[in-house]
Design a binder for these strands. Structure first.
Lengths: 246, 246
DNA sequence: ACCTGAACACCGTTCAAGT
DNA sequence: ACCTGAACACCGTTCAAGT
């Protein structure tokens, strides 16, 4: 497309501007394009959070008029869909080590990791989901592994949704904060302690600070393994267990 | 508070306005109050969806100036927190039939039911969650049952989050819709069929329409039972199973 | 085809003023 | 203490106009 580069290379070989391609205009940003918009939007959300994603803010980030975006993107909703699918492209869908169960675990973990890497965007994952090509690939892989494990199509679909729901839901869950408790609620992070006296909530008081954050390391894996163990048990009791390499 | 009623009752006994309390002013709405605002907001969201919840719209619904709301509610965020806690008040936390596992299942189901009853509001359940008194009661009950089952405090906390995350996540998940596939995407509901040819997604093609909606009846229970079975297995293998009535 | 500026129909919330 | 109207600083998006 840009054939000035080869032409200018021949013309400038006597000068010593090593490493600088004079055909490139380093002052002007590259032209607007769908992928560039989506990438810029994603890094904006990663840095400043989902509420900061504004067509106007994104436009100034790209040094362009707000309305220029609408030449490449139908509306904000589509933009968010594209961002989600871009993130889903980071999921590793091609690992083939181990049997179907360990592959399924690896897939869910990779999915989880992609979401945590863009934790702010994960909040957009609500209501109506519009699957893109990358998302479809993840689904294909998950369903494929479940069928390989021996599940019938309807049950594979149920199992998929359980895993999917848990993984996405985990990311959306934030921290538990009291609602206008006794002390200041400015601090924000200020712990699990509640609005009721300890006598009325003995169990919560016993468990105490373990309740504090959702995103304790290993917490995702705990629930994931619960689900996978449940799946394995289902297969075993229905006697349809696939011949797993023992 | 309104002691006009008893006074006027004595005054009007000769007239025949049966069933009509003349002390009541049926034309003017009852005075603004925190609970009334929250209830009105909830029914607005139930009817028209979360995006329709606007301080201005809520105010006109209550026949009041938008700014009147701010005398009872700090801001929109607090209003949503209050709405969520109101809904959590519908969860049955006092059923005592069966052992801890069946009680835990019943609790999760009741939680799920409360959320589905206000499906539109469930979308607000993201990011930072501010637990209110009703929410805290649900947590207390869940943790209590897990401790009763024999889990250690840290593990009870992990287990709780797995159940909590799954239940909330399930509600937020919408339908799978293709992202700007081949045909019209106006139809909306238009099925699972994807942007890739069937050869590239054999598993999805096999499972087919089973993938279509998340909220198929029984789908929530499937994942819930997976988690509960996993919990039971964990207890059994660590040999700490509580003496459940066999 | 792509970009722009002005404008429209909204938001949540602050503020000064009323009672 | 509670409510009001006007105003501020925003939104997403339409439209007519530019190149």
């Amino acid at each position: 497309m840009n054939d000035q580069s080869s032409a200018s290379r021949g013309r400038c070989d006597s000068t010593a501007w090593v490493g600088v391609d004079p055909s490139q205009d380093y002052t002007r940003p590259p032209p607007l394009s769908r992928p560039r918009i989506v990438r810029a939007a994603l890094s904006l959300v990663d840095e400043k959070g989902l509420p900061a994603l504004t067509m106007r803010a994104l436009a100034t980030e790209l040094e362009v008029s707000p309305m220029a975006l609408y030449n490449h993107v139908r509306d904000k909703e589509e933009l968010v869909d594209l961002m989600l699918d871009l993130v889903l492209g980071e999921v590793d869908t091609s690992a083939t080590e181990g049997d179907w169960l360990t592959q399924l675990r690896a897939l869910a973990r990779s999915y989880h990791q992609a979401l945590t890497a863009h934790h702010e965007l994960a909040q957009a994952y609500r209501g109506r989901v519009r699957i893109g090509p990358h998302g479809l690939l993840v689904i294909e892989r998950a369903i494929g592994l479940l069928l390989e494990g021996g599940f019938s199509p309807p049950e594979a679909s149920d199992a998929f949704f359980a895993l999917f729901t848990y993984t996405v839901g985990f990311e959306q869950m934030g921290y538990i904060v009291r609602l206008r408790g006794g002390a200041t609620h400015e601090g924000g992070e200020a712990g699990y302690y509640p609005l009721l006296p300890p006598e009325q909530i003995p169990a919560v008081t016993t468990v105490g600070p373990h309740l504090d954050g959702v995103h304790r390391p290993g917490r995702f894996d705990y629930g994931l393994d619960l689900l996978l163990a449940g799946l394995q048990a289902k297969l075993a009791q229905s006697g349809k267990a696939a011949a797993a390499p023992s």
